[in-house]
Design a protein around this nucleic acid. Sequence first.
DNA 1: CTTCTATTCTATCGATCGCTAGATTAGACG
DNA 2: CGTCTAATCTAGCGATCGATAGAATAGAAG
Lengths: 218, 218
Amino acid sequence: MTEFPEAPVYERLAHLGKALSAPVRLRLLDLLDQGECTVEELAQRGGFPLKNTSSHLQQLRAAGLVATRREGTRIHYSLRDSEVSRFLGRFQEFAEARMPDLRQEIQEHLGPEGSVDAVTHAELDGMVERGEVLLVDLRSAAEYEEGHLPGAVSVPSRELADRWAELPWDTTIVAYCQGPYCVVSPRAVRLLREAGRSARSLKGGYVDWKRHHDSADD
Amino acid sequence: MTEFPEAPVYERLAHLGKALSAPVRLRLLDLLDQGECTVEELAQRGGFPLKNTSSHLQQLRAAGLVATRREGTRIHYSLRDSEVSRFLGRFQEFAEARMPDLRQEIQEHLGPEGSVDAVTHAELDGMVERGEVLLVDLRSAAEYEEGHLPGAVSVPSRELADRWAELPWDTTIVAYCQGPYCVVSPRAVRLLREAGRSARSLKGGYVDWKRHHDSADD
DNA sequence: CTTCTATTCTATCGATCGCTAGATTAGACG
DNA sequence: CGTCTAATCTAGCGATCGATAGAATAGAAG
């Protein structure tokens, strides 16, 4: 390995880069941004093998990005503080801004409902003020309990197909799911539109909203 | 490799992390933050083999972090825009904030003159207003020409030992070098203090100053 | 103390990455 | 057109990393 005077400092800096250099770890961080989770929950939600997940989490811990809390036999992981969440937001924003293939990949992954058609935070604020919107939280009941947008109704995506008739017809539905790369809300919007409803997806999902609203408190 | 639904998106995001996961690349980015450079200059300043440097630079280019400009037979590299510089600043700040071993390493690397004793930007602004400071740029003449703090005098560190007597005795000397991890200015401050001068190092060096002053313009 | 569960530790394999050295391209100069 | 220089491309080696499976730990429950 090449040696240069400042090497020790840059090697430690590179630890942070390494922590952010594996797709699995980036996904885990986004999952943790939903709220505290056990290793098992993370493995299940992310679709990773358990042992693998554990190992990645420890790397994230070594980089100072996540914290652990023991409760009985379970270990709960969470982002170490809200700064981590904000940093992740900036990291993703920065990456999207200068990697054209990433932007394209996101477009393809989400479809138009999740990207170009999505409601921005500024738009949402205006719509909420004018009372012309119903916020629908598509995540699991557990995730909704951990925290959700003010005024949002919990309709887990699995139940949406059976329950969309309950939703009022006189307002636009703005649906959101976990985060900016989650396909759930774009899909739900497509379903609702096919049912003749006025529906849009919230840009960035819950995570992105939280990132912009944690700055003040916490 | 583990496959999960959002994998393609997170794989691309991980490209950015990978770009930031090698000490050499992080050093190159900081060097480029001084201004445009040819591959050869970078290799020389960083102390890396030329071919190695070229290869790393191309990875940075693939990640959208640096841009190239051809001029005759030489190729000049530079940060792609000032956003990159700001992002790097945040990356380093974030890493320092949550990796205790990194902070410690920096302390040891720079000594007290470069860390705890250093002048912050806010302090410097006040000192400049009151006219009680002489700014000394310790970098090479070429780097000084590329850009420097307003009012700074160029005294390349090699010449300092011969020229410190020229510097006025009635003001505090604030010396700066390339960046936050550069040992040049702390060393210079030590030398000047041993010569009975009132001297301090500028926290973060030229790069850090530039990062905070490019936000407005550019 | 034993048993059970959640998680981590250890060892191994294959893939990737960084470093090195030789061959090659792109442009400048005579 | 050949020659020179700067930089990149290619191939090979050793080190590291991620995935996997078996062994081991820490705490809860009996």
